[in-house]
C-alpha cells in the first residue's frame, strides 16, 4: 500500500471511529445475574471440545463459565500491554503519521478493557491473573521491537476476533455475553485493518535497516502464536470447573488432533497475512501447540 493509500485508510478509519463512537459505560444493560445453568460459551468453543476428555454436562457448563472468565481476562491483560506500547509511541517522530488514529485506538481499547473486566467482576470472582513469565522479554533492537509489538497485538486481536465474531451472533449464550462479543468484534475489524498495514510497513522499515534479524523475528512471532493459543488452555479454569487431573487433561487436550486442527483454523487468517506480506517464509502451520 502506497503512503497516500495508507493515509486515506487512516483518515477513513478515524472517521468511522468518530461516527460509530459509543459510551461503553452506558451501552450495556447489565442484568442482576447471569444464570449458571446457561452455556456462557458455546460448547463448540471449549478447549476440550472434540476430545472426549470431559463429558459431564455440569462440568462442561462450569468450564464454559471459567473459560469465559479466562477469555475476558486474556483480553484485559492483552489490552493493557497494547495500551502501554501504543502510549509509548504516540506523538513520537516515528509514529507521527498515525497520531490521530492511535488516539481512537487507545480510546476504544480502553472501553473494551473496561467492559471485559466489568463482566468478570460483576458476575464472577474477577479476572484471572496474567501468566507472566519470570524471564525478561527478549529485545531485538528498536526497529524490530516495533515489528514484534504490533505483530503481538495483531495476533492477539485476530485470535479473539475468531471467537468474538462467532459468539457475537450465538443465540445459545446469555444476551449480555453475546452483546459484549458483538461490540468487540465491531470495533476490532478497524483495528485489525490498521494493524496489518502498520505491521507490513514496520517490517519493511526494519528489513531495510537490519535484514540479519529477519529469521529470528519470524521464529519469535511464530512462538508467540503458539504461546497465545496455549493461553486459552488455562489450568486454573480447569481446576475451578472441577476437572479431575487438570494439568494432565489440559496437556492431552492441547495435543489432541481435533484441537490441532482447530488451532490451525483459529490462526489461519493471521498466518496467511504473515506469509502473504513476506514476514513469514513458511506458514506457522500445525504441530506447535502440543509441544
Amino acid at each position: 500500500m502506497e503512503d497516500s493509500d495508507f493515509g486515506s485508510m487512516l483518515a477513513r478509519l478515524s472517521e468511522k471511529s468518530r461516527n460509530e463512537y459509543y459510551n461503553p459505560y452506558t451501552k450495556f444493560s447489565w442484568p442482576d445475574s447471569v444464570s449458571e445453568d446457561a452455556w456462557w460459551m458455546n460448547p463448540e468453543y471449549l478447549t476440550v471440545h472434540g476430545t472426549g476428555l470431559v463429558e459431564d454436562e455440569r462440568t462442561l457448563k462450569a468450564l464454559a463459565r471459567y473459560e469465559t472468565v479466562n477469555f475476558f481476562s486474556l483480553h484485559v491483560h492483552g489490552i493493557r500491554e497494547l495500551m502501554i506500547e501504543v502510549a509509548k509511541r504516540i506523538h513520537t517522530p516515528d509514529f507521527a503519521d498515525y497520531n490521530e488514529y492511535l488516539h481512537h485506538f487507545i480510546g476504544e481499547e480502553n472501553a473494551h478493557m473496561w467492559f471485559f473486566a466489568e463482566f468478570c467482576y460483576r458476575y464472577t470472582g474477577g479476572i484471572y491473573p496474567e501468566a507472566a513469565s519470570p524471564l525478561r522479554r527478549e529485545g531485538h533492537g528498536d526497529l524490530w521491537d516495533d515489528v514484534v509489538v504490533f505483530s503481538r497485538i495483531l495476533i492477539f486481536e485476530e485470535i479473539f476476533d475468531y471467537f468474538n465474531s462467532r459468539m457475537g451472533k450465538d443465540q445459545l449464550i446469555p444476551d449480555i455475553l453475546r452483546e459484549i462479543h458483538a461490540a468487540h468484534h465491531h470495533d476490532e475489524s478497524r483495528h485489525v485493518a490498521f494493524g496489518k498495514q502498520l505491521v507490513k510497513r514496520l517490517h519493511q522499515r526494519a528489513c531495510a535497516a537490519d535484514p540479519e534479524r529477519r529469521d529470528e523475528i519470524e521464529k519469535y512471532i511464530k512462538d508467540y502464536m503458539t504461546y497465545s493459543v496455549r493461553s486459552l488452555y488455562n489450568p486454573q479454569a480447569f481446576r475451578d470447573a472441577g476437572v479431575d487431573k487438570p494439568l494432565e487433561v489440559r496437556r492431552k487436550a492441547m495435543q489432541h488432533p481435533v484441537r490441532e486442527a482447530f488451532h490451525v483454523r483459529v490462526m489461519a487468517r493471521v498466518d496467511r497475512f504473515f506469509v502473504a506480506s513476506g514476514i513469514f517464509g513458511t506458514p506457522w502451520g500445525e504441530g506447535h501447540v502440543s509441544a
Binding site: 519470570p134 512462538d223 489450568p235
Partner: peptide, 29 residues
Amino acid sequence: ILDSLTFVEFLLLMEEFSGGPIDLGTTDV
C-alpha cells in the same frame, strides 16, 4: 532453548510432574 514465551509452558510441565503449583516467589528460577 528456554525463553520468556516457552518458560510459562515449561513451568506448567514442571507443576504436572512435581505434583503441585510452583510459586516463583519461593522457588528460584
